[in-house]
Design a protein around this nucleic acid. Sequence first.
DNA 1: ACGAGCATGTAACCTGTTACATGATTAG
DNA 2: CTAATCATGTAACAGGTTACATGCTCGT
Lengths: 184, 184
Amino acid sequence: MISRTDAAILGMLSIEPMSGYDMKKFSEQSLAHFWHESYGNLYPRLKRLEANGMVRGRRERRATAPDATVYRLTAAGKRRFREWLEEDPEPERIRNEMLLKVFFGAQASLELCRDRIVAHRREQETTLERYRAIGDLAAGADDRPDAVFWLMSLRRGILLTEARMRWCDECIRTIDGLNARGDE
Amino acid sequence: MISRTDAAILGMLSIEPMSGYDMKKFSEQSLAHFWHESYGNLYPRLKRLEANGMVRGRRERRATAPDATVYRLTAAGKRRFREWLEEDPEPERIRNEMLLKVFFGAQASLELCRDRIVAHRREQETTLERYRAIGDLAAGADDRPDAVFWLMSLRRGILLTEARMRWCDECIRTIDGLNARGDE
DNA sequence: ACGAGCATGTAACCTGTTACATGATTAG
DNA sequence: CTAATCATGTAACAGGTTACATGCTCGT
Protein backbone atom coordinates (compact mmCIF):
# COMPACT_ATOMS: atom_id res chain seq x y z
CA MET A 1 0.00 0.00 0.00
CA ILE A 2 1.68 3.14 -1.21
CA SER A 3 -0.15 6.36 -1.93
CA ARG A 4 0.62 8.58 -4.89
CA THR A 5 2.19 11.08 -2.56
CA ASP A 6 4.43 8.38 -1.12
CA ALA A 7 5.55 7.52 -4.65
CA ALA A 8 6.28 11.15 -5.45
CA ILE A 9 8.35 11.45 -2.25
CA LEU A 10 10.35 8.33 -3.00
CA GLY A 11 10.86 9.58 -6.55
CA MET A 12 12.19 12.94 -5.45
CA LEU A 13 14.52 11.25 -2.99
CA SER A 14 15.73 8.98 -5.77
CA ILE A 15 17.13 12.09 -7.42
CA GLU A 16 18.64 13.65 -4.33
CA PRO A 17 18.34 13.63 -0.52
CA MET A 18 15.92 16.33 0.58
CA SER A 19 13.98 17.80 3.48
CA GLY A 20 10.21 18.10 3.43
CA TYR A 21 10.65 21.75 2.69
CA ASP A 22 12.93 20.98 -0.24
CA MET A 23 10.32 18.61 -1.65
CA LYS A 24 7.66 21.26 -1.63
CA LYS A 25 10.02 23.55 -3.54
CA PHE A 26 10.96 20.80 -5.95
CA SER A 27 7.31 20.00 -6.70
CA GLU A 28 6.64 23.67 -7.33
CA GLN A 29 9.54 24.00 -9.71
CA SER A 30 10.34 20.79 -11.54
CA LEU A 31 7.06 18.91 -11.23
CA ALA A 32 4.72 21.88 -11.35
CA HIS A 33 3.25 21.05 -14.75
CA PHE A 34 1.89 17.67 -13.65
CA TRP A 35 2.22 17.38 -9.88
CA HIS A 36 1.92 19.32 -6.64
CA GLU A 37 2.30 18.64 -2.94
CA SER A 38 1.27 20.42 0.25
CA TYR A 39 3.14 20.52 3.55
CA GLY A 40 0.12 19.18 5.35
CA ASN A 41 0.41 16.01 3.36
CA LEU A 42 4.17 15.85 2.94
CA TYR A 43 5.28 15.89 6.56
CA PRO A 44 2.93 13.23 7.94
CA ARG A 45 3.74 11.00 4.95
CA LEU A 46 7.45 11.38 5.57
CA LYS A 47 6.96 10.22 9.15
CA ARG A 48 5.01 7.20 7.98
CA LEU A 49 7.53 6.32 5.32
CA GLU A 50 10.27 6.49 7.92
CA ALA A 51 8.29 4.26 10.29
CA ASN A 52 7.94 1.77 7.44
CA GLY A 53 11.67 1.85 6.73
CA MET A 54 11.33 3.37 3.26
CA VAL A 55 13.30 6.53 4.10
CA ARG A 56 15.61 7.69 6.85
CA GLY A 57 15.81 11.29 8.06
CA ARG A 58 18.87 12.88 9.60
CA ARG A 59 19.17 16.32 11.11
CA GLU A 60 21.73 18.28 9.14
CA ARG A 61 23.50 21.56 9.48
CA ARG A 62 23.15 23.78 6.42
CA ALA A 63 25.56 26.44 5.31
CA THR A 64 23.17 29.26 4.67
CA ALA A 65 19.90 28.31 6.39
CA PRO A 66 18.51 26.75 9.58
CA ASP A 67 19.00 23.04 10.26
CA ALA A 68 16.79 20.65 8.33
CA THR A 69 15.82 17.00 8.54
CA VAL A 70 17.21 15.59 5.32
CA TYR A 71 15.71 12.31 4.15
CA ARG A 72 17.38 9.58 2.10
CA LEU A 73 16.00 6.45 0.48
CA THR A 74 16.75 3.18 2.26
CA ALA A 75 17.42 0.06 0.20
CA ALA A 76 13.82 -1.01 0.85
CA GLY A 77 12.56 2.37 -0.25
CA LYS A 78 14.53 2.23 -3.46
CA ARG A 79 13.18 -1.23 -4.15
CA ARG A 80 9.62 -0.18 -3.43
CA PHE A 81 9.93 2.80 -5.75
CA ARG A 82 11.19 0.67 -8.63
CA GLU A 83 8.24 -1.67 -8.11
CA TRP A 84 5.89 1.28 -8.24
CA LEU A 85 7.56 2.52 -11.41
CA GLU A 86 6.77 -0.76 -13.14
CA GLU A 87 3.11 -0.83 -12.13
CA ASP A 88 0.65 0.52 -14.65
CA PRO A 89 -0.43 4.03 -13.72
CA GLU A 90 -4.08 4.17 -12.77
CA PRO A 91 -6.20 6.16 -15.16
CA GLU A 92 -6.57 9.80 -14.18
CA ARG A 93 -9.87 10.91 -12.78
CA ILE A 94 -10.23 14.24 -14.45
CA ARG A 95 -12.48 16.93 -13.09
CA ASN A 96 -12.14 20.15 -14.96
CA GLU A 97 -14.25 22.83 -13.34
CA MET A 98 -13.73 25.34 -16.10
CA LEU A 99 -15.00 22.90 -18.72
CA LEU A 100 -18.00 22.14 -16.54
CA LYS A 101 -18.81 25.83 -16.62
CA VAL A 102 -18.38 25.93 -20.38
CA PHE A 103 -20.59 22.88 -20.82
CA PHE A 104 -23.42 24.52 -18.90
CA GLY A 105 -22.70 27.86 -20.51
CA ALA A 106 -26.15 28.19 -22.08
CA GLN A 107 -27.45 28.85 -18.57
CA ALA A 108 -25.46 32.07 -18.39
CA SER A 109 -24.45 34.76 -20.88
CA LEU A 110 -22.22 34.33 -23.91
CA GLU A 111 -20.13 37.22 -22.61
CA LEU A 112 -19.32 35.37 -19.42
CA CYS A 113 -18.25 32.34 -21.38
CA ARG A 114 -16.15 34.42 -23.73
CA ASP A 115 -14.45 36.29 -20.90
CA ARG A 116 -13.69 33.03 -19.20
CA ILE A 117 -12.05 31.63 -22.29
CA VAL A 118 -10.06 34.79 -22.91
CA ALA A 119 -8.78 34.59 -19.33
CA HIS A 120 -7.97 30.93 -19.83
CA ARG A 121 -6.01 31.76 -22.94
CA ARG A 122 -3.99 34.36 -21.03
CA GLU A 123 -3.19 31.79 -18.34
CA GLN A 124 -1.90 29.42 -20.99
CA GLU A 125 0.43 32.09 -22.31
CA THR A 126 2.09 32.62 -18.93
CA THR A 127 2.23 28.87 -18.41
CA LEU A 128 4.02 28.49 -21.71
CA GLU A 129 6.59 31.07 -20.70
CA ARG A 130 7.23 29.20 -17.46
CA TYR A 131 7.77 26.01 -19.43
CA ARG A 132 10.32 27.67 -21.66
CA ALA A 133 12.20 28.79 -18.56
CA ILE A 134 12.16 25.26 -17.14
CA GLY A 135 13.34 23.99 -20.51
CA ASP A 136 16.39 26.23 -20.43
CA LEU A 137 17.13 24.97 -16.94
CA ALA A 138 16.81 21.31 -17.90
CA ALA A 139 18.84 21.81 -21.06
CA GLY A 140 21.70 22.97 -18.88
CA ALA A 141 21.69 19.65 -17.00
CA ASP A 142 21.87 17.38 -20.03
CA ASP A 143 24.81 15.46 -18.62
CA ARG A 144 22.39 13.80 -16.20
CA PRO A 145 20.83 10.55 -17.44
CA ASP A 146 17.50 11.94 -16.19
CA ALA A 147 17.58 14.91 -18.53
CA VAL A 148 15.88 13.16 -21.47
CA PHE A 149 12.96 12.14 -19.27
CA TRP A 150 12.63 15.57 -17.75
CA LEU A 151 12.50 17.10 -21.20
CA MET A 152 9.95 14.55 -22.39
CA SER A 153 7.59 15.33 -19.53
CA LEU A 154 8.06 19.03 -20.09
CA ARG A 155 7.44 18.69 -23.81
CA ARG A 156 4.04 17.24 -23.03
CA GLY A 157 3.15 20.31 -21.02
CA ILE A 158 4.15 22.52 -23.91
CA LEU A 159 2.19 20.59 -26.54
CA LEU A 160 -0.93 20.48 -24.37
CA THR A 161 -0.70 24.14 -23.51
CA GLU A 162 -0.41 25.05 -27.17
CA ALA A 163 -3.43 22.86 -27.92
CA ARG A 164 -5.41 24.63 -25.19
CA MET A 165 -4.49 27.96 -26.73
CA ARG A 166 -5.72 26.82 -30.11
CA TRP A 167 -8.93 25.68 -28.50
CA CYS A 168 -9.41 29.10 -26.90
CA ASP A 169 -8.90 30.79 -30.26
CA GLU A 170 -11.43 28.51 -31.94
CA CYS A 171 -13.99 29.11 -29.21
CA ILE A 172 -13.60 32.86 -29.35
CA ARG A 173 -14.12 32.79 -33.10
CA THR A 174 -17.21 30.61 -32.65
CA ILE A 175 -18.68 32.89 -30.01
CA ASP A 176 -17.99 36.01 -32.03
CA GLY A 177 -19.64 34.32 -34.98
CA LEU A 178 -22.75 33.69 -32.91
CA ASN A 179 -22.81 37.30 -31.74
CA ALA A 180 -22.49 38.61 -35.29
CA ARG A 181 -25.53 36.56 -36.30
CA GLY A 182 -27.50 37.68 -33.27
CA ASP A 183 -26.78 41.33 -34.05
CA GLU A 184 -28.13 41.24 -37.59
CA MET B 1 -20.71 26.30 0.57
CA ILE B 2 -21.25 24.18 -2.48
CA SER B 3 -18.94 21.38 -3.51
CA ARG B 4 -17.93 20.67 -7.07
CA THR B 5 -20.13 17.61 -7.04
CA ASP B 6 -23.08 19.69 -5.89
CA ALA B 7 -22.48 22.05 -8.80
CA ALA B 8 -22.33 19.17 -11.26
CA ILE B 9 -25.61 17.81 -9.89
CA LEU B 10 -27.36 21.16 -10.15
CA GLY B 11 -25.96 21.54 -13.65
CA MET B 12 -27.26 18.19 -14.82
CA LEU B 13 -30.65 18.97 -13.34
CA SER B 14 -30.63 22.30 -15.13
CA ILE B 15 -30.71 20.31 -18.34
CA GLU B 16 -33.33 17.80 -17.33
CA PRO B 17 -34.90 16.20 -14.20
CA MET B 18 -32.99 13.06 -13.31
CA SER B 19 -32.53 10.32 -10.74
CA GLY B 20 -29.18 9.64 -9.10
CA TYR B 21 -28.80 6.70 -11.39
CA ASP B 22 -29.48 8.86 -14.44
CA MET B 23 -26.82 11.30 -13.29
CA LYS B 24 -24.20 8.60 -13.11
CA LYS B 25 -25.10 7.56 -16.67
CA PHE B 26 -25.06 11.15 -17.84
CA SER B 27 -21.64 11.78 -16.36
CA GLU B 28 -20.33 8.66 -18.04
CA GLN B 29 -21.69 9.66 -21.41
CA SER B 30 -21.87 13.40 -21.89
CA LEU B 31 -19.36 14.62 -19.30
CA ALA B 32 -16.93 11.72 -19.51
CA HIS B 33 -14.11 13.71 -21.10
CA PHE B 34 -13.84 16.18 -18.24
CA TRP B 35 -15.95 14.92 -15.34
CA HIS B 36 -16.99 11.80 -13.45
CA GLU B 37 -19.19 10.93 -10.50
CA SER B 38 -19.62 7.89 -8.26
CA TYR B 39 -22.81 6.64 -6.64
CA GLY B 40 -21.17 6.77 -3.25
CA ASN B 41 -20.83 10.50 -3.64
CA LEU B 42 -23.93 11.26 -5.67
CA TYR B 43 -26.62 9.84 -3.40
CA PRO B 44 -25.52 11.42 -0.13
CA ARG B 45 -25.06 14.76 -1.91
CA LEU B 46 -28.54 14.56 -3.35
CA LYS B 47 -29.95 14.09 0.15
CA ARG B 48 -28.04 17.06 1.41
CA LEU B 49 -29.07 19.24 -1.51
CA GLU B 50 -32.69 18.32 -0.86
CA ALA B 51 -32.33 19.13 2.84
CA ASN B 52 -30.95 22.52 1.81
CA GLY B 53 -33.85 23.15 -0.54
CA MET B 54 -31.74 23.17 -3.70
CA VAL B 55 -33.50 20.19 -5.29
CA ARG B 56 -36.70 18.25 -4.73
CA GLY B 57 -37.04 14.52 -5.36
CA ARG B 58 -40.25 12.77 -6.28
CA ARG B 59 -40.86 9.08 -6.64
CA GLU B 60 -41.94 8.39 -10.20
CA ARG B 61 -43.28 5.47 -12.10
CA ARG B 62 -41.27 4.69 -15.22
CA ALA B 63 -42.53 3.01 -18.34
CA THR B 64 -39.88 0.37 -18.79
CA ALA B 65 -37.93 0.24 -15.53
CA PRO B 66 -38.38 0.20 -11.75
CA ASP B 67 -39.57 3.33 -9.97
CA ALA B 68 -37.00 6.03 -9.47
CA THR B 69 -36.63 9.16 -7.35
CA VAL B 70 -36.46 11.90 -9.92
CA TYR B 71 -34.98 15.20 -8.78
CA ARG B 72 -35.76 18.68 -10.04
CA LEU B 73 -34.15 22.03 -9.35
CA THR B 74 -36.02 24.34 -7.01
CA ALA B 75 -35.98 28.08 -7.65
CA ALA B 76 -33.28 28.40 -4.98
CA GLY B 77 -31.25 25.64 -6.62
CA LYS B 78 -31.46 27.30 -10.00
CA ARG B 79 -30.36 30.58 -8.47
CA ARG B 80 -27.48 28.94 -6.65
CA PHE B 81 -26.31 27.23 -9.82
CA ARG B 82 -26.26 30.48 -11.78
CA GLU B 83 -24.21 32.06 -9.02
CA TRP B 84 -21.76 29.19 -9.20
CA LEU B 85 -21.55 29.56 -12.97
CA GLU B 86 -20.42 33.17 -12.58
CA GLU B 87 -17.72 32.42 -10.03
CA ASP B 88 -14.20 31.96 -11.34
CA PRO B 89 -13.32 28.28 -11.56
CA GLU B 90 -10.57 27.35 -9.13
CA PRO B 91 -7.35 26.31 -10.80
CA GLU B 92 -7.10 22.59 -11.38
CA ARG B 93 -4.73 20.66 -9.18
CA ILE B 94 -3.25 18.29 -11.67
CA ARG B 95 -1.65 15.04 -10.62
CA ASN B 96 -0.71 12.93 -13.57
CA GLU B 97 0.63 9.61 -12.40
CA MET B 98 1.77 8.52 -15.83
CA LEU B 99 3.87 11.66 -16.25
CA LEU B 100 5.36 11.13 -12.82
CA LYS B 101 6.50 7.73 -14.02
CA VAL B 102 7.94 9.21 -17.18
CA PHE B 103 9.73 11.92 -15.22
CA PHE B 104 11.47 9.33 -13.05
CA GLY B 105 11.96 7.04 -16.02
CA ALA B 106 15.77 7.00 -15.74
CA GLN B 107 15.30 4.82 -12.67
CA ALA B 108 13.83 2.04 -14.81
CA SER B 109 14.43 0.75 -18.32
CA LEU B 110 13.89 2.63 -21.56
CA GLU B 111 11.76 -0.28 -22.74
CA LEU B 112 9.32 0.17 -19.88
CA CYS B 113 8.99 3.84 -20.66
CA ARG B 114 8.53 3.16 -24.35
CA ASP B 115 5.89 0.49 -23.73
CA ARG B 116 4.07 2.81 -21.42
CA ILE B 117 3.95 5.53 -24.03
CA VAL B 118 2.85 3.13 -26.77
CA ALA B 119 0.01 2.00 -24.50
CA HIS B 120 -0.86 5.61 -23.79
CA ARG B 121 -0.99 6.36 -27.49
CA ARG B 122 -3.37 3.45 -28.03
CA GLU B 123 -5.64 4.74 -25.27
CA GLN B 124 -5.77 8.12 -26.96
CA GLU B 125 -6.87 6.49 -30.19
CA THR B 126 -9.87 4.82 -28.60
CA THR B 127 -10.66 8.01 -26.72
CA LEU B 128 -10.69 9.91 -29.97
CA GLU B 129 -13.14 7.45 -31.48
CA ARG B 130 -15.44 7.89 -28.49
CA TYR B 131 -15.32 11.64 -28.97
CA ARG B 132 -16.29 11.33 -32.60
CA ALA B 133 -19.29 9.25 -31.55
CA ILE B 134 -20.33 11.86 -28.98
CA GLY B 135 -19.87 14.52 -31.65
CA ASP B 136 -22.33 12.80 -33.96
CA LEU B 137 -24.79 12.59 -31.08
CA ALA B 138 -24.46 16.25 -30.18
CA ALA B 139 -24.66 17.34 -33.81
CA GLY B 140 -28.07 15.70 -33.96
CA ALA B 141 -29.29 17.93 -31.12
CA ASP B 142 -28.29 21.27 -32.60
CA ASP B 143 -31.73 22.71 -32.10
CA ARG B 144 -30.96 22.95 -28.39
CA PRO B 145 -29.36 26.22 -27.28
CA ASP B 146 -26.90 24.09 -25.29
CA ALA B 147 -25.52 22.38 -28.38
CA VAL B 148 -22.84 24.99 -29.12
CA PHE B 149 -21.46 24.69 -25.60
CA TRP B 150 -21.50 20.92 -25.67
CA LEU B 151 -19.57 20.93 -28.91
CA MET B 152 -17.07 23.46 -27.58
CA SER B 153 -16.29 21.32 -24.55
CA LEU B 154 -16.03 18.26 -26.74
CA ARG B 155 -13.75 20.02 -29.18
CA ARG B 156 -11.30 20.63 -26.36
CA GLY B 157 -11.15 16.93 -25.64
CA ILE B 158 -10.39 16.23 -29.28
CA LEU B 159 -7.65 18.84 -29.59
CA LEU B 160 -5.98 17.71 -26.38
CA THR B 161 -6.19 14.07 -27.33
CA GLU B 162 -4.58 14.79 -30.67
CA ALA B 163 -1.83 16.74 -28.92
CA ARG B 164 -1.23 13.80 -26.58
CA MET B 165 -0.91 11.52 -29.58
CA ARG B 166 1.64 13.82 -31.15
CA TRP B 167 3.56 13.82 -27.89
CA CYS B 168 3.59 10.03 -27.84
CA ASP B 169 4.92 9.92 -31.39
CA GLU B 170 7.66 12.40 -30.54
CA CYS B 171 8.67 10.45 -27.45
CA ILE B 172 8.80 7.15 -29.29
CA ARG B 173 11.04 8.70 -31.93
CA THR B 174 13.27 10.15 -29.22
CA ILE B 175 13.56 6.84 -27.39
CA ASP B 176 14.25 4.91 -30.58
CA GLY B 177 16.92 7.46 -31.40
CA LEU B 178 18.58 6.86 -28.03
CA ASN B 179 18.45 3.11 -28.56
CA ALA B 180 20.03 3.39 -32.01
CA ARG B 181 22.92 5.35 -30.51
CA GLY B 182 23.33 2.88 -27.70
CA ASP B 183 23.46 -0.05 -30.11
CA GLU B 184 26.34 1.32 -32.19
C1' DA C 1 -36.43 -19.08 -14.08
C1' DC C 2 -32.63 -16.10 -14.82
C1' DG C 3 -29.44 -12.68 -16.20
C1' DA C 4 -28.99 -7.90 -17.32
C1' DG C 5 -29.81 -3.58 -16.32
C1' DC C 6 -32.40 -0.34 -13.23
C1' DA C 7 -32.13 1.84 -8.73
C1' DT C 8 -30.59 3.22 -4.03
C1' DG C 9 -27.94 3.36 -0.41
C1' DT C 10 -24.21 3.18 3.47
C1' DA C 11 -20.04 2.40 6.25
C1' DA C 12 -15.27 2.28 6.31
C1' DC C 13 -11.70 4.34 4.62
C1' DC C 14 -8.13 7.12 2.38
C1' DT C 15 -6.30 11.15 0.72
C1' DG C 16 -5.38 15.50 0.81
C1' DT C 17 -6.30 20.62 1.95
C1' DT C 18 -6.66 24.61 4.98
C1' DA C 19 -5.68 27.12 8.63
C1' DC C 20 -3.14 27.73 12.33
C1' DA C 21 1.05 27.70 15.26
C1' DT C 22 5.88 28.02 16.05
C1' DG C 23 10.54 29.12 15.78
C1' DA C 24 15.33 29.61 13.46
C1' DT C 25 18.46 32.18 10.46
C1' DT C 26 20.12 35.51 7.37
C1' DA C 27 20.42 39.56 4.33
C1' DG C 28 19.74 44.30 4.15
C1' DC D 1 16.03 45.49 13.81
C1' DT D 2 13.11 43.46 10.71
C1' DA D 3 11.39 41.31 6.82
C1' DA D 4 11.98 37.36 4.14
C1' DT D 5 12.85 32.86 3.82
C1' DC D 6 13.85 28.49 5.89
C1' DA D 7 11.69 24.75 8.37
C1' DT D 8 8.25 21.72 10.70
C1' DG D 9 4.25 20.39 12.22
C1' DT D 10 -0.91 19.34 13.55
C1' DA D 11 -5.97 19.35 13.99
C1' DA D 12 -10.14 19.79 11.77
C1' DC D 13 -12.27 18.93 7.90
C1' DA D 14 -13.93 18.11 3.13
C1' DG D 15 -14.28 15.39 -0.44
C1' DG D 16 -14.54 11.35 -2.60
C1' DT D 17 -13.82 6.05 -3.52
C1' DT D 18 -14.60 1.20 -2.66
C1' DA D 19 -16.90 -2.48 -1.34
C1' DC D 20 -20.81 -4.23 0.09
C1' DA D 21 -25.87 -4.94 0.46
C1' DT D 22 -30.39 -4.94 -1.34
C1' DG D 23 -34.28 -5.35 -4.23
C1' DC D 24 -37.09 -4.43 -8.54
C1' DT D 25 -38.38 -5.24 -13.43
C1' DC D 26 -37.94 -6.63 -18.10
C1' DG D 27 -36.85 -9.57 -21.89
C1' DT D 28 -35.96 -14.28 -23.29
